[in-house]
Nucleic acid binder design. Structure first.
Lengths: 201, 201
DNA sequence: ACTACTAACTAACATTTGTTAGTATTGCAA
DNA sequence: TTGCAATACTAACAAATGTTAGTTAGTAGT
């Protein structure tokens, strides 16, 4: 079970260093633009030595993508299991999503953008998880409709649009920016629920 | 002045073929994942022959990115010049955006995702245009606030979230899917303005 | 018929790529 | 102190990369 420094921050193993450095470089240059030699020199070793810690380049990508996906899924299913109010569920789902994506900004970015470069097998597995995640959101929307608190919308369309807003966070979030993840999640929830138009009350 | 087949669809020059093919490949494999030899074999010639039509790999990317950016900007400034009602402006701006991104799905995708791989100079120029575009949207939001029809929100934040939803279209739009660009734009406008919550009237 | 241009070709270039093999060094447990 | 596992190294690999040089065939204008 492979572990990055963000998950187990105390034991900063060489492997965790390598992965963290890789993610930062992939954030800047993209997966394909980051070579094993780039990564190696960033952690002050030779490219060949990396293979004592990781099985190859794709392993860095796949580990990151799947670790992130599983954390998102776990959070979402907890929300769906424990709470009852649809608006509250949505709010918590958003918070979960933003929290995980912003916790490690580089991992968040790689997860959102670079999964496309997974090899065929991993990519198919990944897409399945993503679909599962979308279903979890649709469940919330459906419940909201059934209870008459959400509008009747094309659920698939709505979920894609919502996830788009959520994922875009990785594009501009900065750890020391003017909004922290909690505030971002709050504003996003507000936007998703109420839109731009002024209400009458 | 370089012209792709989408802009001047009648004269399908060899160059236009090359660019269109390139965009499709970059959509599938990414900019860095698409080699000149890949492109060449897709148009049935040798890699070296490509240089009779284009100055290099980056030219394909930069031409696409800047052509798209200029079209978006032109559309947006027309909207801002001609119309008065903020909600109507927003609706038309969304329509413009969706229309241009979906007209050529591959170009749309490359524009949204691959501009990061522009060289330093082009990338800086591109980011300037993007900022200008965001400002055009902010103008609309501000006007809406001033006239009391939009909520007071963090404009920068709102614009980024809105553009996120709009750009995400390139992720799932299919020319022969269940919604055409007009319908997509309409639904997006609805979502941006009204959100998910049921209104009281 | 001569010229100039277009667009294709082959060949080669210097790098860079991910990865493997084989070897040396280190530090800890026995 | 010996032995072992972890971790680093050098060297090399075959393949792929963007691009240039030089050449050739066809075509249009004079």
């Amino acid at each position: 079970m492979l572990v990055s420094s963000k998950i187990s921050p105390k034991t900063t193993t060489r492997k965790a260093q390598i992965i963290d450095t890789s993610l930062e470089m992939m954030y800047r240059l993209g997966y394909q633009g980051t070579s094993m030699r780039d990564i190696a020199s960033s952690v002050s070793m030779e490219a060949a030595s990396l293979y004592n810690h990781i099985s190859g380049k794709e392993a860095i990508l796949s580990e990151t993508c799947f670790t992130m996906a599983e954390r998102l899924l776990k959070g979402l299913s907890e929300v769906n299991d424990i709470y009852f109010n649809p608006a509250e569920k949505l709010s918590l789902a958003v918070k979960n999503h933003v929290h995980i994506l912003t916790e490690n900004t580089f991992a968040g970015w790689v997860f959102v953008h670079e999964w496309r470069h997974l090899g065929d097998e991993n990519r198919h597995r990944f897409v399945k998880l993503r679909d599962e995640y979308e279903k979890g959101f649709i469940t919330i929307l459906k419940q909201g409709e059934d209870e008459g608190v959400f509008q009747d919308v094309n659920n698939k369309f709505a979920v894609l649009t919502i996830l788009a807003s959520l994922n875009w966070v990785v594009e501009w979030y900065k750890p020391h920016g003017s909004m922290n993840p909690e505030q971002i999640a709050e504003k996003l929830t507000e936007f998703i629920l109420s839109g731009l138009k002024k209400t009458n009350n």
